[in-house]
Design a protein around this nucleic acid. Structure first.
Lengths: 115, 115
DNA sequence: CGTAGATACCTCGCCTGTCAAGGTATATAT
DNA sequence: ATATATACCTTGACAGGCGAGGTATCTACG
């Protein structure tokens, strides 16, 4: 039910970027927001989340800094870069494309509306 | 461009099932039809295809038999089973669901049309 | 006859993203 | 003290996709 690891594969990074476009945030927060947004249908696992952060930072799509909270646990904040914004737009186009392709391949005798 | 391995992951099996619903077929043919259907935007790689066949047969979603061609290379035909048809319907539902979830997570400030 | 290309099948081993399981530290409440 | 929530992180296993390689048949060309 909800959504499988295989189907989510490759979407973790754009999902994170999409959240960071709305403003800097940190891991725990992003994770909670995803769960809320999907009514608990999808939960990004922590290990997945943090490995995605690492990849995103290594490729320059995000950057990170420690928050200056003086109460509670420390937070590492992430911010999206210009490169990240561009990549996000690309991702979105790719996704629209991929949806069409998969729809076409999954639904026999459909999408053949114009030929 | 076109579609990445990560995004296609998990869709290979339902794509094959979708083709077999229209009638028995064999690897090479299925591969060609996929390319034609997507205008060469997506090509199922042979190694991917045959490993998917194996998984599908092992789990009883398809079965195979050798064609009785007496000219040309031999063909191994595949047929979808009842279990396969059910699995395909499940896959399609899951896919509709996954699309919604990913869309929601990818597009900020959208899909919030009714709340 | 050789060799090129299309048809048709298959296997091996690498790569990469996900995730279960474990760990650390701080603050609050009982 | 002990539990719970917040907040971070690492390690190693697993699985699916795929590059690279292989086999065999038939046709076409020079």
């Amino acid at each position: 039910m909800s959504i499988t690891s295989d189907v989510i594969r490759g979407h973790t990074e754009p999902i994170i970027l999409s959240h960071l476009i709305e403003g800097d945030s940190y891991g725990y927060q992003i994770n909670k927001e995803i769960m809320e947004k999907t009514n608990n249908l999808y939960e990004l696992k922590e290990a997945t989340l943090y490995s995605a952060f690492r990849r995103l930072e290594e490729s320059g799509l995000i950057l990170s800094y420690w928050g200056d909270e003086n109460v509670g646990a420390r937070r590492r904040y992430y911010a999206i870069t210009d490169k990240g914004r561009k990549a996000y737009q690309e991702y979105k186009k790719d996704w629209e494309n991929a949806k069409d392709i998969i729809d076409k391949l999954l639904n026999n005798r459909e999408g053949s509306s114009n030929e």
